[in-house]
């Protein structure tokens, strides 16, 4: 190959056998195309690829941030809903207790009125009965006195004496009082 190089003349500027890297004749060619390639890559990267990737990464970052914010929002909302639910439950419980208490008080009041009424009517009835009993008792005493007088008059006449009505009355009355 070194022979070939020498034969060609163009690239034979002291190219040592075995090291194409040191073949100075090809340097111009390599450098020219390399610079062209680097410029091409630079423009492709700086004009298209890098801004695009930067935009993608920024967009992703934005999306993630937004999603996290939205999730936090929803969490707060859920907590609020829970608190509202708890509050409603507590309110309902308090209301139920209040209603129960009210009802109980009302019933108690009704009951008290009814008991009072019943007591009053019972007392009236009792007084009436007592009056009746007293009357009956008084009636009975009169009857007893009359019977006693009659009986005493009979006894006295049977024994042959003449019964003096006023004396018997006085005796019977005295006995009954004693």
């Amino acid at each position: 190959m070194a022979d070939n190089n020498n034969a060609a003349g163009e690239v034979a500027l002291g190219a040592p056998p075995g090291m194409p890297q040191l073949d100075v004749g090809t340097f111009g060619n390599q450098i020219f195309w390399l610079v062209l390639a680097l410029v091409a890559i630079y423009f492709v990267l700086s004009r298209v690829a890098l801004p695009r990737i930067a935009a993608i990464l920024a967009e992703r970052q934005g999306t993630i941030t937004n999603d996290i914010a939205a999730a936090e929002d929803l969490k707060v909302k859920a907590e609020e809903a829970e608190a509202a639910y708890e509050k409603a439950l507590a309110d309902a419980r308090a209301e139920a207790q209040r209603i129960a208490g009210e009802t109980k008080a009302k019933i108690q009041a009704d009951l008290d009125v009814a008991i009072e009424k019943a007591d009053a009517s019972i007392a009236a009835k009792a007084a009436e009965s007592e009056a009746a009993i007293a009357e009956i008792r008084a009636g009975a005493l009169v009857a007893v006195a009359e019977v006693a007088k009659d009986t005493a008059a009979e006894i006295v006449s049977t024994m042959g004496g003449a019964a003096d009505a006023s004396t018997i009355d006085a005796a019977v009355s005295t006995r009954m009082k004693g």
């Binding site: 060609a8 003349g9 163009e10 690239v11 004749g25 090809t26 111009g28 060619n29 390599q30 450098i31 020219f32 195309w33 390399l34 062209l36 390639a37 091409a40 890559i41 492709v44 990267l45 298209v48 690829a49 890098l50 695009r52 990737i53």
Partner: peptide
């Protein structure tokens, strides 16, 4: 002869490198 503008295997593989960058990044 290899002049500075000659299209060589260097040119070819440099072009492939450019295409590889293009494919990989764009």
């Amino acid at each position: 002869p290899i002049h500075w503008y000659t299209i060589t295997n260097v040119t070819f593989w440099l072009a492939l490198a450019v295409l590889a960058v293009l494919g990989l990044m764009v």
